[in-house]
Write a protein that binds this DNA or RNA. Sequence first.
DNA 1: ACATATTTTTAGATTTGTCTAAATTTATTT
DNA 2: AAATAAATTTAGACAAATCTAAAAATATGT
Lengths: 225, 225
Amino acid sequence: MEYPSASMTQSEENYLKGIYHLSHAGRASVSTNAIAAHMETKPSSVTDMLKRLSDKDLVDYQPYKGVTLTSGGTAQALRVIRKHRLWEVFLVEKLDFSWDEVHEVAEQLEHIASEKLIDRLDALLDYPDFDPHGDPIPDKEGHFKTREKRLLSTLQPGEKGVCIGVKDSSSPFLRFLDKNGIALGTRIAVLEKEEFDDSMAIQMGEQQLQISHQIATNLYIKPIT
Amino acid sequence: MEYPSASMTQSEENYLKGIYHLSHAGRASVSTNAIAAHMETKPSSVTDMLKRLSDKDLVDYQPYKGVTLTSGGTAQALRVIRKHRLWEVFLVEKLDFSWDEVHEVAEQLEHIASEKLIDRLDALLDYPDFDPHGDPIPDKEGHFKTREKRLLSTLQPGEKGVCIGVKDSSSPFLRFLDKNGIALGTRIAVLEKEEFDDSMAIQMGEQQLQISHQIATNLYIKPIT
DNA sequence: ACATATTTTTAGATTTGTCTAAATTTATTT
DNA sequence: AAATAAATTTAGACAAATCTAAAAATATGT
């Protein structure tokens, strides 16, 4: 049984979210330094926070051994991630933000505390399963849809698929995609693969494009047969 | 010329907003105790904050003499108020919140810092001039529309008008109005005034209602002839 | 396995925002 | 105008969140 979410500070929420992302699914133990790097803060600050989170039973923390999220901590992290991603959908769908602009604002909006607000937002957006970068949106219970996804770089010439997400969601990368007409839902067919530098020629609609390996390893594709 | 808004903490924003409301239009000087009462905090905390705001040139503060907002402080307060009221409209219009539920959430949303977000929200809502309680929404330059407004209690039998706002916006009062079918835009005609307790009989559509003086002194009406 | 390097924690300081209790200033009363 | 009351400020403390510098624990290399 889940406890009603105790009040948390924004900083605590950010740490839980960070730890969640680093441990990928709440499994593996995460190191102090890894957290510090990810949060752009100092290891000593991380240690302080880990103690606080441990006192609140949100993480299992053993000095020098790293941390894992408790079930309560995981639930909280997923709540924040849910809010973040729903707000991103809102910003893109309702306020015409581009997908490279949403993150910073969503970082703030994700801390707004109102269950009703999020439920209603979810409804307004018609219960989306994925955010504008293709990442899954957890439901109220923390469950989310998965779908077959492969990096574009793993497709062979002749295979095709539809773009469903990005691995790198930095602004330069997203702006590059925009500029070249690649968005979520874009259908891509692989024409050729260059052995020399692993770049590939792809077809999108009637447009053809040569993309580097760097690009191809950061685009998620759902294969279609 | 206006400076680009320096970064402010939520607490600073709340104080500026509080001082603005207490000084009604940025004119009169406001006392430490009045601020403490309004913000539900202690006078000593207020003194601390006033010094900080004074250092940032957001208020004119003279010990023992009270404060007034500087032009910069007024501009900041109006920016926060603009955001608060736009979010209230959003919550009511797009997420079906009732007018007694919006305040608490808007108190949080008003601190989200993104000019683009607010501009786009304004557009999504079709540039509203008034919030769900009838209060005017400042534009980007801090200007807002005014309109003739009188307390219902000042109307004489035979006069009529349309409800355009509330003075008290506490939940119990707003829920009372909801329950009795009084909303913004409701047309009200005064039938009779009871000398004894200043209660009045009013007509709304085909419905008749007896309301206390207490109610009548908290409802703003735009008279119609 | 021992020395060195890396990681992590502790100790102590800082900032923001708050508080209580005491001191000070201003206002009121007789 | 002196005494009392009220309002305001100061002084000192505390919690959250961060930092730097130093100490302690763990890991690595030969």
